[in-house]
Simulated scan of single mutants.
Amino acid sequence: MTTALVFLLLIGFAIYAINTNQKKKVEQFPPKWHNLLLKHVAFYDDLSPEEQKRFQNRMMTFLSEAHLESVGFELNDLDKVYIASSAVIPVFNFPEWHYRNLSTVLVYPDHFNEDLGFAQNDKDRKIGGLVGTGRFENQMILSRKALHEGFSPHSPKHNTGIHEFVHLIDKLDGSTDGVPEVLMQKPYVIPWLKIIHEKMEEINNNESDIRHYGGTNQAEFLAVAAEYFFEKPELMKKKHPDLYQMLAVCFQGNK
């Protein structure tokens, strides 16, 4: 698939989403999704029944506001559960949240390359997800394979869906720079930057269990650290207590 064709598809989906979401009501949570969540989303399984109900409502609100589309296959219930869960988990502890910088989530069956074509050989950069910029503004593109792998119990500390939604949160203040000002009060910014630089140095010196991609830049560090925080919170609390506490300040809202 060419970049031009993807662009046309995304524009069409964005227009469709704008036209329909103005009238679209929040649908009822499908009861069969409860068991899917219990089986496949550990974050949900750890919640109380009351919190699970709130999680369900937040999922359905998200799905009423974002248009989901796929390339070459039909999205099934588990795909939708994973996408909506990825959106809800980072902001679950906030009383209300809307991704005002997202209109469309486009899902490829597998990894894709920088030209938004299918990654077909080892020379291609195999991308699992990205948040669009420029002409792809307000779009997110995900690999279905990467999305599913992120929720697998065999993929510790790594979740592509959460990673990309944290980038969206970071971007809400106008700059994807690893400092999510919409979550972080100003007095915490300098301590946060200090932690980022210390942890990135550890990563790049091969002295950390944080995924190596987190050493790329501040924005990627935030997204990678958030994956760790939500997927393996107890392990992060033990190995990186300062980082854990700072992310708790960011993501635990009023708790």
Rank of each mutant, 00 (worst) to 15 (best):
D124I: 05
Y188V: 06
E69H: 11
K255H: 13
E202V: 05
D122F: 10
N19F: 13
E231W: 03
P30H: 04
D115R: 13
M184N: 04
W192K: 01
E27G: 11
H167V: 00
S70E: 01
L106Q: 02
E220S: 07
L193E: 15
N21G: 10
P49F: 06
K232L: 11
F62D: 02
S48C: 06
T176L: 14
N93C: 12
E51M: 13
N159G: 07
Q252H: 14
E202P: 06
F13S: 13
D124G: 08
S86K: 03
L5N: 10
S175N: 12
K39V: 03
S152R: 02
G214D: 07
D242C: 07
L78P: 08
L235P: 03
Y82S: 03
E220N: 09
V105D: 05
N254I: 13
M246A: 15
P233M: 00
H197V: 10
E181Q: 14
T2D: 15
L222A: 10
I15K: 01
V179R: 10
N138V: 04
V81Y: 01
K194I: 15
G215N: 06
I127Y: 09
M59T: 03
Q52D: 04
L37E: 14
L222S: 09
H212A: 14
T176A: 13
L243V: 06
T2V: 04
M1G: 10
K194N: 15
H197K: 15
K239H: 04
N57I: 00
Q120I: 12
S64I: 07
K23A: 12
A84L: 03
A146M: 06
L222M: 09
I89Q: 06
K171G: 12
N113I: 00
P156Y: 07
G174D: 03
G117A: 14
T2L: 08
V189Q: 13
G215D: 04
I162S: 01
P187H: 15
G214F: 06
L8T: 11
E137D: 12
K126W: 02
Y82L: 15
N217W: 02
P156A: 02
E69V: 09
N35K: 11
M200S: 04
A66N: 01
L10T: 08
A226Q: 08
N21Q: 15
E74A: 09
D124H: 14
V166S: 03
G128D: 02
P241Q: 03
S152T: 04
A66Y: 00
S64F: 08
S175D: 12
V88K: 11
P233E: 08
D177S: 07
N101F: 00
V81E: 01
H40L: 02
G215C: 05
V224Y: 02
E137Q: 13
E65I: 06
F73V: 04
F94I: 09
G134K: 07
H148K: 13
G174R: 06
N101T: 08
P180Q: 05
H98F: 12
Q245G: 08
W192C: 06
A119T: 10
F229K: 01
N101I: 03
N204K: 05
L183D: 01
K39E: 14
P241D: 01
E50L: 12
P233L: 00
C250G: 02
E50S: 11
I190E: 15
